[in-house]
């Protein structure tokens, strides 16, 4: 029996090597920022990134220790004819690493609260620009309240996109006469914007990577989210909630422009009505 107990070292070596390679490759891939998220364009997005990075450091450290620990264990304790160390466990160690885990995880959760709270618990500034976002298979439609600052009434039975009324604006409601209905989202830089997300048919989603913000648009609900973009540019809006065969083609553009350009946009739209 003693002769058969000794195994070759190839298996354990290879396993330890692969685990080490895994760690090196993963660390490199993250550190080299080979496929990074695009730079954030709001201060809330910066908070999200901070929390992401903190989580990355903490989980990264655990990942490295655990995988290398596994590599070490399989190598060091491979069967070389030794006797295994009989133990049923160690209560002190159990308490120690359980406490460390609780502390780390709960700590992360608490630290992450702010990034969530800023967007979700804090309402937008009272002078936020409101834009209604209506989703349906497979387009985004954006509605501005126009000069009167009021959204017109909508009636689902009046929806008729081919006839130019994709949202079902009620023609009898004067507040709706100046509503601006466009396929892309134009907002001024450094001004708070509140989006009111709606859906006409199935669950869709509004996601802009640079905002680090996404929210499902659920039929039967109007869901508000807000942001303040601090960088002019064009950013892509995509739908992340499976909505049918056109899911991957459903997208639009977030156009962050200067205050001047924004007012020009509003004037052009109003003139065109």
């Amino acid at each position: 029996m003693a002769r058969r107990e000794r195994g070759s070292a190839t298996g354990p070596l290879l396993l330890a090597l692969l685990l080490t390679l895994l760690v090196l490759a993963t660390v490199y891939a993250f550190a080299a920022h080979l496929y990074p998220a695009p730079p954030p364009i709001t201060s809330d997005a910066v908070l999200v990134d901070r929390q992401y990075n903190l989580t990355l450091y903490v989980t990264g450290a655990v990942f490295i220790l655990a995988q290398l620990g596994l590599a070490y264990a399989v190598l060091r304790f491979r069967d070389r004819g030794q006797r295994a160390r009989f133990t049923r466990g160690n209560i002190a160690m159990e308490i120690l690493w359980s406490s460390a885990t609780v502390f780390t995880f709960v700590g992360l959760a608490i630290l992450g609260r702010n990034a969530w709270a800023e967007v979700r618990f804090t309402p937008p500034a009272s002078d936020a620009i409101q834009v209604e976002v209506t989703t349906n298979q497979f387009v985004y439609t954006f509605r501005y309240p126009g000069a009167d600052g009021k959204f017109g009434m909508l009636d689902s039975t009046l929806v008729n996109a081919p006839a130019g009324n994709p949202l079902g604006l009620d023609p009898n409601d004067p507040a709706g006469k100046d509503d601006i209905v466009v396929p892309t989202l134009t907002v001024p830089v450094n001004r708070p914007v509140e989006l009111l997300l709606r859906s006409q048919d199935v669950v869709h989603n509004f996601f802009v990577r640079e905002l680090r913000l996404q929210q499902d648009a659920v039929p039967g609900m109007v869901i508000p989210v807000h942001f303040t973009a601090n960088q002019i540019g064009k950013y892509e809006i995509v739908c992340t909630q499976l909505c049918g065969l056109g899911h991957s083609r459903m997208y639009s553009i977030l156009n962050v422009v200067s205050q001047f350009d924004y007012e020009s946009f509003l004037k052009r739209q109003a003139a065109g009505q």
Binding site: L47, Q51, L56, V58, A109, G112, W116, F207
Partner: peptide, 16 residues
């Protein structure tokens, strides 16, 4: 990797 998704703020950029 689940730890990232467990935090709503980070999940907001990673969901779906």
């Amino acid at each position: 990797s689940g730890i990232f998704l467990a935090q709503p703020a980070v999940d907001t950029m990673l969901h779906a």
